[in-house]
Amino acid sequence: MAGHTRGSGRPNQWLRNLNAKLASIPMILTAVVIFLGGTVWTVVYSFTNSRLLPRLSFVGLDQYERLWAAPRWLISVQNLVIYGFFSLIFSLAIGFLLAALMDQKIRFENTFRTIMLYPFALSFIVTGLVWQWLLNPEYGIQSVVRSLGWTSFAFDPLYNSNIVIYGILIAALWQGTGLVMCLMLAGLRGIDEDIWKATRVDGIPMWKTYLLVIIPMMRGVFITTLVIIASGIVKVYDLVVAQTSGGPGIASEVPAKYVYDYMFQAQNLGQGFAASTMMLVTVAIIIVPWAYLEFGGGRKRA
């Protein structure tokens, strides 16, 4: 080791771990050029009137004004808020509940875990199609229940503009809770057995232990799960395409679909870029506080 150090002065900071730095150059380039470069490019072109092909003729905030005046975009945002709110709450709640149940040292835990996680292995397109069929009034749940005798039973969320977004939410929860459960289960397994013993000695009821001791201890797992769910919410697209393709009418449109439709079908890149920039802002609002908590503020506290 001593042989490597130069005769005088401190070792050059830039040359420390040179091999590792060299090895990470491709990844750094990828990150900077593709992710950062692509993002900046998109944002810049969102201020232009690019149609089918990108061109640099700036029109100020026109694209954004049109975007926020478009009824379809407003409905998309509203749908995303509803979908996001409920899918966050329910997937966290159901996922944690399932994990807590699974953690009771039940028999066949492996089997149950696999069953719960299976939906997650399916693509959104498959999930969407399956639920499209299940929720179709002519073949799905409604017709089964009716054939059992309840002939006035009506359950066709995908064909009712007012509740269609909940039909999509059902499919999303069916697919997503398995993963949340696994993450939570991992968190629960990380809790020291002694803590459980201590609470038992103190005679604290189990639900109280979960709520006041275990959940606060799982803060890290919760935040990671939150970020995974939240980013999944913002980018929801394929599920909607497979289930309703935005219908009936435009009642189940989501922002990501607006971006695709306007970029490619309407051949209006500027408008699509403006919409995707708005999505980026949304994601940033979610990610930045998390990154700050995890990597910035958290470290100082620790």
Binding site: S161, G249, I250
Partner: peptide, 9 residues
């Protein structure tokens, strides 16, 4: 967008 909304709503 307008007419698909109009026909469905």
């Amino acid at each position: 967008d307008l007419f698909s909304e109009f026909f469905a709503n």
